[in-house]
Amino acid sequence: MNRKSYKGYVYLAPVLAIMLVFTAYPLVRAIFMSFCEDYSIINGSYKGINLENYADLFKDKDFRKAITNTITYVIFVVPLSVVISLLIANLLNSHIRFQGLFQTLYFLPYVTSVIAIGVVWRWILHSQYGLLNSILNFFGFESIGWLTDRNYSMASLIIFAVWKSLAFDIMIFLAALQGISPDLYSAARVDATPRWRVFFRITVPAMRPIIAYAFVMGIINSFKVYNEVFSLFNGSAGPSGYNSAITIVFYIYDKFYNNYKYGIAAAGSVVLFLLIMFFTAIQRLPGRIRARKEAAQK
């Protein structure tokens, strides 16, 4: 390592300058807003500085539900998506015929219009004519009201969301797989090591930074889930009337843009912020512990 110098800041300067104006400033303002009672976005007026917004927030059963829903969502969607994507990316990167064709096919969902995606998923999950229920019936199972039964709202949302995040994860994993030096594999080939062991002994460790990235980003993005809910339930947060699939950002958006409760929306954002901080910190723990152990062993 070279000595500490301020040179790093020269490299960071462009990014920091833009973020100061377009991210840090509005963020600080949002945090400030969260402590203002009856804040008006129009003229910046407020009644007083207190914790009224936070009190309102936790009194609201919709917000509490939004928190539990969002956490459930994160716990299911992130690991599922990473594991499936890793598997598919690995297959795509192995010696297969029509490799280019397959890679393109897996990329296409990423550019498909969101309208088409919402429409087709509502058709797949439709209780009467849906593809998924047809398959279930074929195997002798009963139809499920994926979009009508509020007990299944989160399940439907999770299935949809895993599907939706696959294309992105596959893409970055592929890029990482392509970057692994072939020399790493040659040794294994000589030893005739079983493929699954090559995968866990060589591929996964070499991709550790990218897998970590997928996890961190997965957690952050999943905590901010909004569009998935909106497009699956046709604009509401679950079967009409029920907020059974409400998420934190859905709640924030509704408070801000539909109910003009800017302070409460801002307070919701701060709570979300703290939650994400907490979860990303937990996520990093195993890495930290391992690093510490390794350091101790040396």
Binding site: I115, G118, V119, N227, S231, N234, G235, S236
Partner: peptide
């Protein structure tokens, strides 16, 4: 109405 307008992004 709002949902109708909004859901250009989503609706069949």
């Amino acid at each position: 109405k709002k949902i109708m307008a909004l859901t250009m992004a989503t609706v069949m």
